[in-house]
């Protein structure tokens, strides 16, 4: 059992939890994730390691309540426990000095971006962060990310904070200003990662994205998480979750992520969440 030792409500649908998981905390690195199961009848769901504390032996997760499991998770409190918590899974981010990096986080993708921003800054990069969300209330971790960024931009769909528009608009401006960009890291909704990758491809800027396909085991056994990268089939749980954005077949990922939509809705309805 893995105890919840801290809980914060970041917005109406986004929550942060610190979970006691000694072994995972010992090994966790930026870019990796965990798979948890709340109880005996629960589903295994993957969540990014948003932060870790090796001394306290805790892992921070930040999740958006989108379906049965994440909503149920949101109702748990400090002192409650999760039945299963396995990790750290996936390959860590390739953290090195690229010169100037642009880190783009969209929606709940801001959470997994945070440890990467931190690690890239610590490696001596000049970090430009761009955070985007539908509106101000969905923005998170702004302060934390700012403290590790040399520049921070914000874009909201409705203009309630920062620039009105998309994160890709901000990136376009940076490119138009002829800023030297060594690497772009983009994490967020699939469509956002696709738009960013399409943009940087035109300029030949290296771009990494972190993919979120449906997973089951997280050990490379089931192949449910497979994604098409450069025409090859890769398993996101062991080969990823980060891949070269210019090679990813985003359309296929979007379609595969809709696989169980009807069942998930049914599950939520029955659970009354």
């Amino acid at each position: 059992m893995y105890k919840i030792v801290e809980k914060k409500v970041l917005s109406e649908t986004v929550k942060l939890m610190k979970i006691k998981a000694l072994l995972v905390a010992k090994k966790a690195q930026a870019g990796q994730f965990i798979i948890l199961r709340i109880d005996e009848s629960g589903e295994r769901i993957p969540l990014t390691i948003a932060d870790y504390d090796r001394k306290q032996g805790t892992i921070t997760i930040i999740f958006m309540e989108v379906g049965k499991t994440t909503k149920q998770l949101g109702t748990l409190n400090v002192g409650d426990s999760l039945l299963n918590f396995a990790g750290p899974l996936g390959a860590p981010s390739e953290i090195k000095n690229y010169g100037t990096v642009v880190c783009i986080g969209g929606g709940v993708g801001i959470a997994p971006l945070y440890p990467i921003v931190k690690a890239l800054k610590e490696k001596g990069n000049y970090v430009i962060s761009i955070l985007g969300a539908r509106n101000e209330s969905l923005l998170m971790l702004e302060k934390e990310i700012k403290s590790f960024s040399d520049e921070l931009y914000i874009a909201t769909d409705d203009g309630s904070k920062g620039q009105k528009g998309f994160v890709s608009d901000v990136l376009q401006q940076l490119i138009d200003e002829k800023r030297e960009i060594g690497m772009v890291m983009a994490i967020g909704p699939v469509i956002m990662m696709k738009v960013v990758s399409d943009l940087t491809r035109k300029y030949g800027i290296k771009t990494l994205v972190s993919l979120n396909p449906i997973m089951v085991d997280g050990t490379g056994m089931c192949g449910g998480c497979r994604v098409s990268v450069g025409g090859e089939t890769k398993f996101a749980c062991v080969d990823g979750p980060e891949f070269d954005g210019h090679l990813v077949d985003f359309d296929n990922l979007m379609l595969r992520n809709r696989r169980f939509i009807c069942e998930e809705e049914e599950s939520c309805k029955l659970a009354g969440v």
Binding site: S41, G42, E43, R44, K68, T69, V216, D217, M221, C222, G223, G224, R226, V227, S228, T233, D249, N252, L255, R256, R258, R259, F260, E263, E264, E266, S267, L270, A271
Partner: peptide, 30 residues
């Protein structure tokens, strides 16, 4: 082979056996 509807036997059987998808929605895995 990556279309929606194509499973590896491992994914199909794991969902049904280990995750008990045959008892969905009593069990959460579809």
């Amino acid at each position: 082979e990556n279309l929606d509807g194509v499973y590896s036997a491992n994914e199909f059987l794991t969902r049904v056996n280990m995750m008990k998808a045959y008892k969905f929605p009593e069990y959460d895995t579809p």
